[in-house]
Design a protein around this nucleic acid. Sequence first.
DNA 1: GATGAATGAGTATTCATTCAT
DNA 2: GATGAATGAATACTCATTCAT
Lengths: 218, 218, 218, 218
Amino acid sequence: MPKNTFFNLPEEKRELILNLAIEEFAEKDFKNASISNLVARAEIAKGSFYQYFEDKRDLYLYLIQLAGEEKKRFLEQKSPPDPNMNLFDFLRWAIHEGAQFEFSNPLLAKVAARALFSDRPLGDSPFEQLQTMVKAYYQGLVQLGKAQGVIREDLDDDMVAFLLSTIFNNFGKYILDRNQIDANELAQGAFDYQSIQMKDQTNQLIDILQNGLSPVKQ
Amino acid sequence: MPKNTFFNLPEEKRELILNLAIEEFAEKDFKNASISNLVARAEIAKGSFYQYFEDKRDLYLYLIQLAGEEKKRFLEQKSPPDPNMNLFDFLRWAIHEGAQFEFSNPLLAKVAARALFSDRPLGDSPFEQLQTMVKAYYQGLVQLGKAQGVIREDLDDDMVAFLLSTIFNNFGKYILDRNQIDANELAQGAFDYQSIQMKDQTNQLIDILQNGLSPVKQ
Amino acid sequence: MPKNTFFNLPEEKRELILNLAIEEFAEKDFKNASISNLVARAEIAKGSFYQYFEDKRDLYLYLIQLAGEEKKRFLEQKSPPDPNMNLFDFLRWAIHEGAQFEFSNPLLAKVAARALFSDRPLGDSPFEQLQTMVKAYYQGLVQLGKAQGVIREDLDDDMVAFLLSTIFNNFGKYILDRNQIDANELAQGAFDYQSIQMKDQTNQLIDILQNGLSPVKQ
Amino acid sequence: MPKNTFFNLPEEKRELILNLAIEEFAEKDFKNASISNLVARAEIAKGSFYQYFEDKRDLYLYLIQLAGEEKKRFLEQKSPPDPNMNLFDFLRWAIHEGAQFEFSNPLLAKVAARALFSDRPLGDSPFEQLQTMVKAYYQGLVQLGKAQGVIREDLDDDMVAFLLSTIFNNFGKYILDRNQIDANELAQGAFDYQSIQMKDQTNQLIDILQNGLSPVKQ
DNA sequence: GATGAATGAGTATTCATTCAT
DNA sequence: GATGAATGAATACTCATTCAT
């Protein structure tokens, strides 16, 4: 956790450091992300960095935590779904919002994706919490679906959660790839999610899941 | 490409270097993988490494190529599917074999996954070919499915290919996670794919896809 | 250009580093001059060198610039010549002073000579400016001589400038050779220019040039 | 000295190695000249090099010796001057021939120039012989001039020898510079000495020396 | 006599972290 | 609380030379 000195910083300065840190860890993985580079760009003293953070690791873990919180806040701040809403209608809404998150915080999303999928410089333990959280979230969705009767009872919870999370976690990147959008350009506001026509494909994707997961209608 | 000196090495020594290299690049990304560490563990002279490989990049690209070849060979050596086989029956077979590959070459699979999904130290070009190949493969499957009438005609090819490839690419890792198996222990032969009961879940997964993608029966 | 950290160093330390650097680059050309050796002898940390200088090239170019400035300062600090002074009287003065410079800064002179005459590790561009400056200086002298009527009008400016610069550039080294003086010993203050009787030869040399270049008296 | 194995080589192969070695040592100084590069380009085995030469130093010294011999042979093979010829007429002839040597053996000339003027990787001793030879040659010329009565008796032999040698040694390079000719292109026969109009300047240069050195006519 | 793989000390440069001011 | 100079282990890579075949 960052030290108090960091949180006591004037908001403007704190935000600057944070944004530059996100850029740095979005572009490079843990080892290659450079504190030297960060402090140079933020125009703070090397020593100051160590007044704000324990070490590089401290900053990194903070960013990952932040990414989780940001995503959660993002989803909550938008009209959160009626708990009685059909699960697939919720997913239809959520995949849009999730993609929009990737669009509005592309660099932070990149940091998180890196942490979740490949770069594990600090061993697995610091990430397990995040991963457990994510997993629990999707398992909750599956259980909700079963309770609503829109997911077949016999399906393995764990496996369905894997299916959903895998798809949702990669969908944002898929959109970027498909539309040949670079995360850095995106961070500079070069694109607008609304301008991209993905609705049809998104609906098809949810349809597939719905058809695949629902009890067979007779 | 490694130099002839490498291929002329006694098999035992060559294998040793290769395995240690795979370990190194499985644990760390390109930049962090250390040649110094590799040669120390392999007990060869620094200079010898450069007799065998042009440079670090040369070794890395070789490993990636190797991963592709190994996977291809693995799939081919097992009874390859009857082209007339129903696509989903083929997928049912392939997801098993693919997972088995991840089991028999866990570290090499890790190197490849890293290359495909996050670590792009050498620019995108060396990977685009691989990625294009993978993408084409899955789009071919989609088209086959449509031709067989087992995938709905109106579905977007690209999106379905994304769905399949995402699931297949992550399934192996999912199995490892679910069974709490570490790739390094696995590499030391600590586990056996057959001993793990995944058949039910695997079948369910394919069922979901089949139900989701097939034309609605009426 | 060295960084501020270098100029902020206590004078004693700065001088030590500089002198050892001059020794290093006087003995060896750019590629062979060893930063490792330098920092070992200066007893500073490897990393400290890179706090002071961008890189090896940075130090090298600084030394060359220093050599130029030192020489210029040296000539200016001594009573600069009356612009109306006969060119050959000026040369008589200058060749003495120039040789004295080689005596008081033998290693720096060696670095500069190497840069001007043979070692071009960084392409020609950084040196062209210096070389152009030197060339322009001598051509200016030739034109002055013609204006004063002490150099024959029909002589090729370029060629005469070559003649003068070649002689002046090599004279210092000639004196060292003739008196069997080693630049390194000299740097340690083992010799004194005044103690060496060269006045007669120097005068003869200028006489030769004067007789050779002047319009024939009739 | 190269070993007998070298001299026993088929002439074609020996010449090839020699020419590539000259290229290597013309482009780079002793330390940077690369045996690895040489053997690669000559397509001989690394070990073979050490069958032919003691070490790098051995080859280098051989090249320098060769350069001296070549120059001597070059001057002798052309109609050598009548010993009774006026010294300055001889110099007028010699400066042409010398420049032509630089033109016909530009790379070898470069190796020699480097050795004489700046690169002294092996200490001074191996070069002293060459330098002594050169010096003796020019002192001989000065004495001849005095004997002929065309050089003033009171001039210091040593200094006049310095003057002549300095000018003659740098004149070839001056011509190359003035005509913006690159030694490597020259080695490939891209230029022809005859095509360059330097006669006027050359004559002026000798005139200057003659006027400067001759006893004053009254 | 030819080969070419093996060696290892050498190179410049980077960077997280410390600590005296 | 801020500073930024100092540190030194770490990095990839080179190359003359040796030596077993």
